[in-house]
Simulated scan of single mutants.
Amino acid sequence: MNFSDEEICTHFGESYHEHHGAVSPPVYQTSLFAFDSFEAFTEAQKKEQENYVYTRGVNPTTEILERKLALLERGEKCKCFASGMGAISSIFFSLLKSGDHVLFVNNIYGPTIQLMEHLNRFSIDYSSVDNNLEEMVKAIKPTTKLIYVESPGTMLMKVVDLQQVAQIARERGIVTAIDNTWSTPIFQKPLMDGFDLSVHSLTKYIGGHSDVVGGAVIGNEELIDTISRYGFQLNGAVLSPHDASLIIRGLRTLPLRLKQHQQHCLKVIEYLKGKKAISRIHHPSLEADTKSYINKQMKGFSGLLSFELKQAGFDQVSQFINHLRVFKIGVSWGGFESLVNAPVKRGNEEELNKQGLSPGLIRLSIGLEGADVLIEDLEQAFQALSCE
């Protein structure tokens, strides 16, 4: 079906005639669904992932969201979860067994690595490489069952050539998954580049209002059915119908919000280029002219960036962040508000250097307050930093 992304985000999958013409889908706030006969009940139980039996399986409100996300990614099927980590853990729980190996490519979200460290207890091994494909090929083992990518990657926003990764994995019979939260399906569709699974924290841009936590996995029907049967049904990371309705609301403005996030972000980057206190800025737009695959696989660059202070350390980072007024200090990103965060803590500078991260690294999530307002806020923080 040839729907535009805007049509999918606004109207696709919403049957108004079934809900008395309501333009917003009803919230089916129910834990279970009753049946007229025991025969009908037992038949529905045979295919609980297709029938409304228990909201821990399928719920009409959540199903609307899943259909939208599946089509946005150009996948066959989607399963939503109570958090991004619920979605990520469902993949590992469903597809891996003792003796398997996972290869992480690029900078990966910290809790994802923590989860794999926990799975070491069950003899599931992992290793990590940067976004260098030659190093990736060398790191593949006979036991590698999953190549897991984040692109753009956490903190440094490096981009991976998705088509090349998918081809290398396909030739070896390895499943590929990507955390596509940074770009959303509006700016990047990894399944069309050959990836098997695309993962999202719906908490970020897709939700967009910093009032809901959720996750999703999209892929072909066979893989998603397996994930639904084990990683979803048995782990119980269920997205509530109310939260699903909030995310459906977020989808309605996602294309517009992303354009605005990007526009503000690019203006902020131009401002940061002129700051002598900065040694480096990290954002995919800065590499797009030199790496052809970036423009090939990405339609836009959203609003998450990072930069490195030349005077790197906890005290300098703290001084800068504490002088910001519009940017709020907090975890997560992708909401309407601008946020600031940094990986440095007192005493962990050496550890960060080993990870390839500068102790002066600061991450900005550019919100919707307006580029001029944000630049003014950054300027007074830079001025305070130079005075102190």
Rank of each mutant, 00 (worst) to 15 (best):
L71P: 05
I88G: 00
D179Y: 03
N2F: 09
L256N: 15
L223C: 11
D130G: 14
D130V: 11
E7C: 10
M298I: 06
Q262P: 10
L72R: 00
S37T: 09
H101D: 11
E379V: 15
S127C: 09
S24N: 12
A288R: 05
S201R: 00
L115P: 07
D225R: 08
A166T: 05
K77R: 14
N106T: 04
G274P: 08
E73K: 08
E14F: 04
K273A: 02
A384I: 07
R249F: 05
E351R: 14
T30A: 15
K354S: 13
V165T: 13
P185H: 07
L352S: 09
K47E: 10
I124F: 11
V212K: 01
R172C: 10
N180W: 00
Y205G: 00
I227N: 07
R172W: 09
Y126S: 13
C265N: 09
I362L: 11
T143H: 06
V217I: 12
E63A: 15
N2A: 15
L156C: 06
P185Q: 09
K97G: 12
D130K: 12
K79H: 07
N120Q: 10
T176C: 06
M85T: 11
E171Y: 06
N220D: 14
Y148Q: 12
L246N: 12
S98A: 12
A342D: 06
L119R: 02
I88D: 01
S94W: 03
V102H: 11
L103N: 08
W333F: 04
W333K: 07
Q49H: 15
N295K: 11
Q263S: 15
N59A: 08
L197R: 03
S127K: 15
